[in-house]
Design a protein around this nucleic acid. Structure first.
Lengths: 182, 182
DNA sequence: GCCTCATGTCAACACTTGTTGACAAATGTT
DNA sequence: AACATTTGTCAACAAGTGTTGACATGAGGC
């Protein structure tokens, strides 16, 4: 790994943390660079600017090849990825990256189109039964709502639930979402 | 209504729109004042500053006296208020005001404590049965998730649903949330 | 050694932000 | 009319933002 690749990836990792914790507009390039132990000007050199850095971070966040693996159930894959048990801190999870920036006046549209291209459309293509769109939207709603309620709003009934209890809550709501009949 | 009260309320209304659309940090005082047709400096005069303006707006947003009315079912009241059929544009609903600012590094904590004091605690006090906290959290998750999915992410299966269909989706998920048994 | 290119450092830039204080205009009171 | 209080206007401020270009330092090839 060359020197430049090293700083590039350090920058990218730091950016993903900041964008996922504070959102695009609240994240400062100087802070991102500082956390990566690197000079601010290098962001412009390697990514062309703040927007380029965000695009790179977003692309990395939404790269879920398992979603296309025919051997795996796409819904189960999505649950695993969304609930993200590998991340030690859910402040920086993909869910937060999406939710926190989907409304941003600058990057909101990029986030939404990336979300559709990389996640929602592939998921929809692999679901069957009636009212696929409606059930899929309800599934997304449950995932997103649970994440916000647990980690952002910190409502005790979810925030204080242990992993097993929270998993039961999630399953119950997801089952309801997917079994919806108009 | 005196002159000062008029500009004060114009400022407050404009602020609620901007805070609800862009969030605290992305909303600019000059833009808020401009939309209210008023000079920026008057914000400091009437509200003491940006934080004071936000506090006033938040307080107005979360003032739901119906929640304490013993003649009304609190859950039904919450559903009505959250889905907010009176607002012509959901970009500025209370739900957005809360979600969009609950993570803000400056006002996030204020939002969360206000949410608990004004909404969650009163709701919890008027629910009965087992696992009240867990079911209430799941209820919140459904409301929040549906709002984001429909209006922020704009997932077609919810964003394009008409009022009747969306109401059915909401009811289905809410029923599931409230009927959860550990 | 010497040259070249990649990489990093630093200072400045134009711009926007929230806030403040001095001043003007309007309104009400005596 | 003359004064006092409220209300509004304007310009400036310090601080922070993303971005840029000139320069310094490093490593590898001739």
């Amino acid at each position: 790994m060359s020197k430049s690749e090293h700083t590039r990836s350090a920058l990218l990792q730091s950016a993903t943390r900041q964008f996922g914790e504070f959102g695009y507009s609240n994240a400062s390039l100087r802070q991102i660079a500082g956390q990566a132990g690197v000079d601010v000007a290098l962001i412009s050199r390697y990514f062309g600017g703040k927007l380029g850095l965000f695009d790179a971070s977003l692309k990395e966040c939404l790269n879920w090849p398992e979603l296309l693996d025919p051997a795996k159930d796409p819904i189960e894959t999505a649950i695993e990825k969304f609930t993200d048990p590998t991340s030690e801190d859910h402040k920086f999870s993909t869910t937060r990256m999406i939710i926190l920036n989907a409304d941003d006046p600058i990057v909101g549209e990029r986030v939404r189109t990336a979300l559709f291209d990389k996640l929602i459309d592939p998921l929809e293509a692999r679901m069957d039964g009636t009212h696929v769109k409606e059930r899929l939207a309800m599934f997304i709603a449950v995932i997103v709502g649970a994440s916000i309620t647990r980690y952002s709003l910190q409502v005790p009934g979810m925030a204080n639930a242990d992993a097993k209890m929270h998993s039961r809550q999630l399953r119950h709501l997801i089952d309801a979402a997917l079994s919806f009949k108009c």
